[in-house]
């Protein structure tokens, strides 16, 4: 049974829009790269936090929003990424390159961990990842060379605070850019269709011939590398790790979930919006202490109740608009053929 359908329809991949988005994105990236020459150091220093928050939210969204793996244990990789800087810095590598090398090393560590984590499903997977994070913290604090349970400072670092901030800023920007671009291209590839199929129904995805475990493993490792890179930035900005309890703290997972849910899970734009909202709240209200956490909680509850798709999810749904074009649209080539609208 064959047909000449390709002559009647075309499949739009939104290639033109993707090119425009790529060009605009490149311009924004270039502007951000030269921003330290325009803005004061305290401004760009604050932006470093925004960049790693966006990286964290983007990679957690890839994991949970696109692959359906709700992890509350990404702090394991944040911590390992941070501590990896000490390891590679002690081996003679500069701290900035150490961020990237540690990220790759954490990806290698995450690979066997995925075999343990994937034996669990749903809520058990979430709790399991948390347990893995706790176990990782317990292992790391056994090493005297990593400061035991006391935390540690980076030993070989750029002396000049301005240059230190500048280099950290650029590394953070590059990692954020890489996280967004990688997610965008991944979702436009065949892996993107596989991931979303798995998220929506794992059994049916297998029946479509999708290698479910293999696909999930790729995302698990990529998300771990993203979290590790963000952890490296946190370490660079703090000139070290103040306390293993903080860097391996479940708070990071809570904040990632918060950013992704309020921004819009399962969209590329949502985690970016969520990270900006969280960053602004943190920047202006964190001095409120405990009340700040209450406000965050109330905001999360209100958004879940009244905007369950998240801020961007709601905008995208209402106006049928996406900044990052992913997916496909079938278009009839003849006016007589009509397709139902979404």
């Amino acid at each position: 049974m064959t047909s000449q359908l390709s002559a009647d329809y075309k499949v739009d991949h939104f290639q033109k829009k993707a090119t425009v988005v790529g060009l605009v994105g490149a311009a924004v990236f270039l502007f951000a790269a030269v921003a330290p020459y325009i803005f004061a150091t305290d401004v760009t220093s604050a932006w470093i936090k925004l960049f790693y928050l966006i990286s964290l939210a983007t990679t957690w969204n890839l994991l949970a929003g696109y692959a359906g793996m709700v992890s509350v244990g990404q702090q394991a990789y944040i911590g390992l990424g941070a501590y990896g800087i000490f390891v590679f810095n002690d081996m003679g590598l500069d701290p900035y390159s150490s961020v990237l090398v540690a990220s790759v090393a954490v990806g290698i560590i995450a690979f066997p961990i995925s075999y343990v984590a994937f034996r669990l499903r749903g809520g058990y997977f979430a709790i399991g990842t948390w347990v893995i994070a706790e176990a990782t913290r317990q292992i790391v604090i056994r090493f005297d060379s990593l400061g035991s349970g006391r935390g540690r400072s980076i030993t070989t670092y750029t002396e000049d605070a301005i240059y230190r901030n500048l280099f950290t800023y650029w590394v953070a920007l590059a990692i954020m850019g890489l996280a967004i671009v990688a997610t965008f291209y991944l979702l436009r590839s065949r892996l993107g269709v596989a991931l979303q199929s798995i998220r929506d129904n794992e059994v049916a995805a297998k029946s479509m011939g999708i290698k479910v475990s293999q696909t999930k493993r790729i995302v698990f490792v990529v998300a771990a590398m993203g979290a590790a890179a963000a952890g490296g930035i946190i370490c660079l900005q703090g000139l070290g790790v103040a306390s293993p309890n903080t860097i391996f703290g479940v708070n990071y997972s809570a904040f990632m979930i918060f950013m992704v849910l309020i921004g819009g899970i399962g969209t590329i734009e949502g985690p970016i919006i969520g990270a900006i909202i969280y960053f602004l709240m943190d920047y202006y209200f964190s001095q409120m202490g405990l009340w700040y956490m209450v406000v965050l909680g109330v905001l999360a509850i209100l958004i879940m109740l009244f905007l369950p798709r998240g801020v961007w999810g709601e905008i995208s749904h209402r106006f049928n608009f996406k900044v990052f074009p992913v997916g496909h649209q079938v278009q009839p080539l003849f006016p007589g053929i009509k397709l139902k609208k979404k």
Binding site: A194, S197, D200, G209, G266, H328, Q329
Partner: peptide, 25 residues
């Protein structure tokens, strides 16, 4: 499947594309 298991967040075309890409290779 007797009880349909669609990929609810993908379009109908993308549901079929999933099978064509991975099942049919």
């Amino acid at each position: 499947f007797q009880i349909p298991r669609p990929f609810t967040n993908l379009t109908v075309f993308e549901n079929a594309l999933s099978g064509a890409t991975f099942g049919a290779g």
